[in-house]
Nucleic acid binder design. Structure first.
Lengths: 213, 213, 213, 213
DNA sequence: TGATAAACGAGACGGTACGTCGAGTCTTCGT
DNA sequence: ACGAAGACTCGACGTACCGTCTCGTTTATCA
């Protein structure tokens, strides 16, 4: 029954546009093969074969195998991240970084992120898309807690949000891309602690919980 | 004359081992082509042609084009870094990070570092060598100022050197690999300032949780 | 106005059977493209585009691009050949061969004939249809003058009509398909003269040129 | 032993030029596949696979699959034809045409000749090479008996050798390419008989067997 | 003073994947 | 019911590099 339904739905192309079946199968196959064999062994022919799809169908909708991974990544990222406002910078930031660490550590998303970041080093066009479609949105997400704290007046006027973001997330990406070390909750919490400690020191306005003294 | 000298030096093989001329020409050609066309367009055949060398000669001495870049990188890195002891953590660290930023910003070394870091994302073997031959030595260099300060007793017993290194260098690699932003002296100095501020805070003013004593 | 008429005639499918407009446009487009670009560059997609017709419409009515050419050829051939009985073998044959030579020399029909003959070498099915639909009818047409002469008693009983047809038309096809030489009237006339000369020799009745016996 | 010898001889390419093994294997494979599956199913990939050779090796030495067939054809033709001078036009011509008929009837050479002749209809470049490398040399061979007869003075001054060649060989090619009929010795002998009969008639010098009256 | 042996240039080889083209099939909508 | 549109699977195209393999040449060194 389910198979029948799937088969009947699986149209082979018509004037209404592309086959959803093919779109999903390709992205799934690319993800799977990336995880199994690594990016070096990832070929368009291999993806096509694994997805049960013609090579031409892939080239019709994606300019390169990297583009497939971008689509897969963006989809995953949109699902993964949520923003909850605790009304306090500390918990907000700790949640954020923890979510990021979890996302970049999950085997499938880790593989895709690293593959894209790696390819960005080799191809300026990939680098550009990587920044606009991956890094910029992520940074926007990570900026939210700080932005809210700023609006609440919990951050001094001289506070440099961008520098803080670099210092909070830089070490995480460092471990992901360069040392392949784990990212336990204690690690990301410590990053937040260090930042907040600096805040206490400089502005003398709030305690760790962001409550004015 | 110079040409003659070059030609005479350029032996076509003998029983005393490899041709220095070929070794240098290959590494130089690889570097040049990487800078001109990018890693994606870097091929062993292209390097061989540019170096005026047979493909087999490259394969005789290097297992892959990545290995050529490793050799070139290690050479450059050994030349670049110097360690001067100012007897004070601040200046030592500022010098260190500035040197690192300069090295990773120079067009040629930037290209090689990014190419290797990128390839490390795609190939576990490259990743392993990248850590042992590139990241570990660099981290050892960067650790020196902190180690000296520790020995001088200028750091509290609870101070976590490895975490500090992550937080000092993470943002630098982040900008190099992911956002392609510049790394001015003010930026690296600020990183040090933030760390030192935290030290002051932790040792003399607050406890580790940032609560004023 | 004319455009309106055309447009109104050009129905986009209805329940009254196939579109005459599409049928003609396809054959015309196939002919044109064959002449312009040659058979090697003739594609069903190209014909469809040139005819302003969907690919499926072609496949609905013709099994292959060769079949289109067959249809076009048969149409042309039916129009071209006429049979006039001069009551004399010589003039009848000379007219026949001249008509054949003219037909096979006209750029459009030449192209189609050669394309089909060529494809017949590569595909047994095409070869079969080529013989039944092209060569056999043509040979039947060419046989008529001889048949009439036979009935008139102008040919000896031992005369081999089929051999004569081979020797009359063989050289013509030879020049068309293999040497691309011209086929002037003098050439075809000479073929007839040679045959008739042989007749004189064998039957000892009259020759057709009026040379006294 | 033989295998060893073959294996040791089978070099994989070196500075002395191309591999003879590959050259022969490709031509043999092309011939075999042509005979087995026909020209329509003949692909460079198929030839490469059958010959145990890389596709690139074929493209290195032949611009197209047609070129391979030309090479194979020329080789076969050079081996097949011999010219013996009986001192008499009749026997010389009869031998000639019989040899031609045999050659064009042998399954392997028949397939190659038809494939090339067919492709010549589709591609002007093939047509040109077909004329210079196949038809012209063959016609030169077939012309020899007539040329000798002319030099012996056995042909009248007004005798048109080229027309005679058309009329002798045209019917043969006609049967090969267009009707796929057999070419028994009696058929080719009859062609010669008809020509000689015409000679007797016109020059009154020799009888049908070429013996002076 | 040759003979020897290592490394050289050159470049053909068997392969793998590339990105493109066209073939022939299928489905939907509009007329 | 048929045509236009166009996405689909499939197979072959010709190209680019891969890494491997001789082959003939060069040249320092050792017999």
């Amino acid at each position: 029954m389910a198979d029948d339904a799937t088969t009947s739905r699986r149209h082979h192309g018509n004037r209404h546009g592309r086959s959803e079946h093919a779109r999903v199968a390709v992205m799934q196959a690319a993800d799977d093969l990336l995880l199994e064999r690594g990016f070096a062994a990832l070929t368009v022919e291999g993806i096509a074969a694994a997805a049960g799809v013609a090579k031409q169908t892939i080239y019709r909708w994606w300019p390169s195998k990297t583009a497939i991974l971008f689509d897969a990544y963006v989809l995953d990222a949109a699902e993964h991240f949520t923003d909850t406002d605790h009304g306090d910078l500390g918990p907000d930031l700790r949640d954020r970084l923890s979510q990021l660490a979890t996302f970049l550590t999950r085997p499938d998303t880790h593989a895709v992120f690293c593959a894209l970041a790696g390819q960005a080093q080799h191809d300026p066009a990939v680098a550009a898309r990587f920044r606009t479609d991956v890094m910029d949105p992520q940074r926007a997400r990570d900026r939210q807690p700080l932005q809210r704290a700023l609006q609440r007046g919990h951050l001094g006027t001289g506070f440099d949000i961008e520098a803080a973001l670099d210092e909070l997330t830089g070490p995480i990406y460092y471990r992901i891309l360069l040392t392949n070390q784990s990212l336990p909750r204690t690690y990301t919490d410590q990053l937040v602690t260090h930042l907040l400690g600096r805040l206490t020191d400089t502005i003398h306005v709030t305690d760790q919980r962001g409550v004015p003294t």
